[in-house]
Design a binder for these strands. Structure first.
Lengths: 343, 343
DNA sequence: ATGAAAGCGCTAACAC
DNA sequence: GTGTTAGCGCTTTCAT
């Protein structure tokens, strides 16, 4: 029976007056933790009054008093990149379940992250989740010094000072390599990610290790300037220019793989007849491209969810002692890979 | 020379003491509007002290005092849907430029929107942007009654009570239809969007009108249950079951078009040889599917940016009197459309 | 079980 | 140009 939700200058005092009790009683009655201290009768009256007046506790006031804003911040490098929305979704779901709100910021330029964090500090967020950390990120230093509760997602902290939730990049690449080797490929190349980003080096290491397990070495490796289609195309082009084409190429991510498609097509090479390609992420629609991409699926939403859960645990005082949670990726075989042509 | 950004219990009082002035002087000195009232000398001293101590104004306190939180909320139905991230990006860019933060909430179930708004009201957001409004949305009523500054994006308010920023759905469909007619198609069908969503009806109207302009009528129309690939496939299947296949089908959105691809392929029909297909949105990767989709491109980022700008104008007191801004979409021709086969 | 009172950090009248 | 004062709405001792 919520009445007219008109503009609400109704304060706790109004409720107290209406209920004929003191404001502190109202405060207690409306607090889940303290309501046990109040008699059933008063509880009823207060709740009725609050309801009737359309009372909405002013969070700013409560934040000022308690120092807790029920607010967290998230920094993502590019919300337009399909891996981040599911992560955000996971974070937001966890936050909403606790009555928290999430400030989402799109930090295009890494140097702009610092001022954003400054503003978040001013807003007194209860914690932040960083999806932006590069290797040796000064931001890690900053949040640690500032005493800001922080969790990393999708990118771990190599210095081990911050808890993180990541996917197992090494395993991911091993799945791809094993699949290719199983198909009979010998000359397996790698389109590597930027080596200043944790996932970039992790995946490169994974490829090398997996190949080594088969007593093989990367046929050729080219580093991409970024996780983008353009960078992938450029890198593939460069690889092709370097000599004989590989039989298969393991890409650091889907976008790069699609860029490789572009370059390969331009060079008159067919996927998978002439060359097999694998991606990483299983972005939406990669099952519809031509040919459907064999790739690695990540539990993106869970990555977000878990990171938020860790953050809230820390906010609630459970020192996580910088643990890193590693989630398992899985191989999704489609049409971009097949056995190499007989020679 | 910002010193150790340690946990900051440093208040305006500490700065005042360090600078040897009164707190109100500090407040003024640090406020862009009021700093002109302060002597250069004092200004210098205060700024130096603030800097040195690592002072960060407590926004919660300021919000309590002024009633302004420098915070806005955004409700999106599905952040995972590729149209929304660019919109969010536009909103966030506009907000960041003003020192505002954005609460992003993913409202899966429309019935959950109300409690989310209640919480936003409690947080005292300065305004909200709704990307979720359905037709005759009770939410519109709610925010109007609550006196919450609101702008709609991507979906207009038919009752005209709220300002909105939308893309021209009628024009979009006209572009698609004209293209198809120009190619020589006669039997043009429509896979319509949910008719309880403004864009759904807008686009349907657009198709009908455009066809009428050519003295034609829709060859067949099926409404999709949602803007999804599955719904598109189901609708296309249903259409096919209804009798002779159309020569071309105009889809309400890209996902639906891709669903149509699925159903068509299953039915042994080739795109575009047997049937032409158009989409709407120009999602990432639809240029890489097989065949590359002819579609309508929207200025998504600008949609977001403009809506935020309108919201801030209203927050700053410029009554926008519920104006609706309509942005122009554009046709992107790819490989899913061609002239009908000679019979 | 409830009331009284203080104060979180800031801003805005209002003095001077 | 700067200081004084009051108070935003809430929570939390401390009494009773």
């Amino acid at each position: 029976m919520s009445t007219s939700p008109t503009s609400s200058p109704v304060t706790i005092r109004d409720v107290a007056r209406a209920a004929g009790v003191h404001v502190s009683t109202v405060s207690r009655a409306l607090s889940p933790e303290k309501r046990s201290l109040i008699s059933d009768e008063v509880l009823r009256v207060v709740e009725e009054a609050a309801q009737r007046l359309g009372y909405r506790p002013n969070r700013a006031a409560s934040a000022l008093r308690t120092g807790r804003t029920h607010t967290i911040g998230v920094l993502v490098p590019d919300i337009t990149n399909a891996v981040f929305p599911p992560i955000l979704q996971g974070i937001e779901a966890s936050a909403a379940a606790r009555g928290y709100f999430v400030f989402v910021t799109n930090v295009v330029d890494p140097t702009l992250a610092r001022p954003v964090l400054e503003r978040m500090l001013a807003q007194r967020v209860d914690g932040v989740i960083l999806a932006t950390a590069t290797r040796d990120d000064p931001l890690v230093d900053f949040v640690v010094k500032a005493g800001l509760t922080t969790v990393l997602v999708n990118r771990a902290d190599e210095t081990g000072r911050l808890p993180a939730v990541v996917s197992d990049d090494r395993l991911a690449m091993k799945l791809a390599v094993d699949h290719l080797v199983g198909l009979g490929h010998k000359r397996i190349a790698h389109l590597a990610g930027p080596q200043n980003i944790p996932t970039g080096v992790g995946r490169s290491l994974g490829v090398e290790q997996a190949l080594r397990d088969h007593r093989m070495k990367p046929f050729r490796v080219v580093e991409c300037a970024s996780y983008s289609r353009e960078a992938g195309a450029a890198a593939m082009k460069q690889m092709l220019a370097a000599g004989a084409a590989p039989q298969a190429v393991v890409c650091c991510n889907d976008l790069v793989a699609l860029g490789a498609y572009d370059a390969l097509r331009e060079a008159g090479l067919r996927v998978p007849q002439d060359i097999s390609v694998t991606g990483h992420n299983d972005m939406p629609l990669v099952d519809m491209v031509d040919p459907p991409l064999t790739t690695i699926r990540l539990p993106h939403r869970e990555l977000g969810w878990r990171s938020a859960e860790m953050l809230f645990a820390e906010i609630d005082g459970a020192a996580m002692s910088a643990s890193t949670v590693v989630l398992r990726p899985e191989l999704v075989v489609r049409k971009s890979t097949r056995a190499p042509a007989a020679r």
